[in-house]
Write a protein that binds this DNA or RNA. Structure first.
Length: 303
DNA sequence: ACGCCTACCTGCTTGC
DNA sequence: TGCAAGCAGGTAGGCG
């Protein structure tokens, strides 16, 4: 479900609706939702009375910044949703954590498949040099991070940041033999792209998902860079793509699913050339593309 | 580095 | 109708 555009939509909704609100109490109904090192009981106790000062996003996590500097991270994974419920709203059997706000509303963490994780961290965190090559992570480094900066220390750049230029993408692709689809899904390569937007970006850039990353021409890298940013921006503009469980913090689905070019359109006509969209499996993930528009270099493609 | 597997969970769709 | 298999947007850890 939630990839960068969906998480961004939730974060913006929450910024509007719960920034400034105080958490009166938290109820954890599925303990494993709470990430180590906070035992679930302590998690609730530590949140009592905290005020949410600002809501943002990093990668696919919603960040709830607390007024005292701590940060709560919510990784929605497959079916997680954060929904603001007005007083009197019927309970939700899939609500795994309920934050009761001092004003009577509830902020509900709903998650059918229970894959999502919520953490509570101290501010800051030591920025570590990004590791390449075979350097092993030391014992001290491998421990569970306690500061929010450490949670995202290994994540790649935000694709919508100004600093994410085509040149920067080119530098990251250099020397990588992996397939484009795999790399786009790799959160240490770029943060926030998931299965839907990876397929959409590759279609838009007219690049085959199995293309080896380091074989792209400069022009193709530029197309990929523009395509990734364009599909993510379009997703945000439409409040996200909804399949099954995704909803914004208002509980409403987004509109972007109907605007997707290839994702889950197997057999339907390509919006560019009219030929049928194919589905293959790459890295155990279902992958949709147009074999004509996104031909490999040695295959027949558009003239 | 890279690909592949398994695990984590539940619900919905598909095919017999 | 019933039941089982297959599928789902994510990610972590392990193996070769």
């Amino acid at each position: 479900m939630p990839e960068l555009p969906e998480v961004e939509t939730v974060a913006r909704d929450l910024q509007r609706w719960v920034a400034g609100a105080t958490i009166a109490d938290a109820e954890v109904r599925w303990e494993r939702t709470i990430r180590h090192p906070q035992p679930a009981e302590r998690f609730a106790a530590e949140l009592r009375g905290a005020t949410i000062s600002r809501v943002g996003r990093r990668a696919k996590s919603v960040l709830l910044h607390l007024a005292d500097g701590r940060v709560m991270t919510v990784a929605l994974r497959m079916t997680g949703a954060l929904i603001v419920a007005a007083p009197g709203t019927p309970d939700d059997r899939y609500a795994r954590v309920v934050f009761r706000l001092a004003d009577g509303r509830e902020l509900r963490y709903r998650d059918v498949r229970k894959f999502g994780r919520i953490g509570l961290w101290e501010r800051g965190g030591v920025p570590r040099p990004r590791r390449r090559g075979g350097a092993r992570r030391g014992v001290a480094e491998a421990r569970e991070p306690y500061r929010v900066g450490d949670v995202f220390a290994r994540h790649g750049p935000e694709p919508l940041a100004h600093s994410f230029s085509a040149a920067r993408l080119a530098a990251r692709l250099k020397g990588r033999s992996a397939r484009l689809k795999t790399l786009l899904l790799d959160q240490t390569f770029i943060a926030g792209v998931g299965n839907i937007y990876a397929d959409e970006a590759l279609w838009r850039a007219r690049l085959h998902p199995l293309r080896a990353a380091d074989t792209l021409t400069q022009e193709e890298v530029r197309r990929l860079h523009r395509a990734v940013r364009a599909v993510l921006r379009q997703g945000i503009a439409n409040r996200g793509a909804s399949f099954a469980d995704y909803v914004g913090a208002d509980g409403e689905p987004g509109d972007n699913a109907e605007r997707l070019a290839v994702y889950r359109r197997t057999g339907q006509p390509c919006l560019r050339c009219g030929r049928p969209i194919s589905r293959i499996v790459v890295g155990q993930r279902s992958t949709h593309f147009c074999p004509h528009c996104q031909a490999l270099p040695d295959e027949p493609g558009p003239a």
